[in-house]
């Protein structure tokens, strides 16, 4: 009896891992700047996304964008458009594409590519000024991108 339960749990676990197959930063499919398929296979969490957008150590999107919904976050930048209403202007797939690599949607955009690992000039090891080492990864994980997208979708005017 006991053995059976364990086996079921194990199989269940394996199945959910298989479903949540992550798309690697080099394997993302863009179509006119948009990305249809979820990067992580797991629905994004808008509450976590909201934190990532405002946090200096994570997305730090407010370095360049203002978001009225994040009124508690001080010092919002003026480099990019105000993100209020982004969920109305863009579809979920377009928002995923913009966050993953905005330069596909907007040629030569100043916006950094958050889900990209190749093609950089003198990539560094975070903010140390040293060269990147083998810990180098995308600015945001697949799930973090999904969380941010889930939050952006909620930004209706």
């Amino acid at each position: 009896m006991k053995i059976l339960v364990i086996t079921t749990a194990l199989v269940g676990g394996l199945t959910s891992v298989a479903l949540a197959e992550e798309i690697s930063p080099t394997g993302v499919n863009f179509s006119e700047g948009a990305v249809e398929q979820s990067l992580s296979g797991t629905a994004g969490d808008p509450a976590t996304g909201r934190i990532i957008v405002g946090d200096k150590g994570q997305g730090n999107c407010v370095a360049c964008h203002q978001v009225s919904d994040l009124a508690e976050v001080p010092f919002q930048g003026e480099i990019g458009p105000i993100l209020d209403g982004a969920g109305e202007r863009w579809s979920e797939a377009e928002l995923r594409g913009i966050v993953a690599n905005a330069k596909v949607m907007f040629e030569d955009s100043m916006m950094p590519s958050f889900y990209k690992t190749e093609g950089f000039i003198r990539p560094g090891n975070a903010y140390t000024g040293e060269a990147a080492d083998d810990t180098f990864g995308p600015l945001l994980s697949a799930q973090q991108v999904e969380d941010v997208v889930a939050y952006l979708v909620t930004l209706k005017k």
């Binding site: 200096k56 730090n60 407010v62 370095a63 360049c64 001080p74 010092f75 919002q76 930048g77 003026e78 480099i79 100043m110 950094p112 590519s113 950089f120 000039i121 003198r122 990539p123 560094g124 990147a132 180098f136 600015l139």
Partner: peptide, 25 residues
């Protein structure tokens, strides 16, 4: 004019195209 690093930003991105603007604080 070289867009350096993982953020791919050149001196011009900040000091030529965006002087007068706030970047965070």
């Amino acid at each position: 004019y070289t867009r350096n690093g993982q953020l791919e930003l050149s001196c011009a991105n900040c000091h030529e195209e965006n002087y007068g603007n706030m970047i965070r604080a």
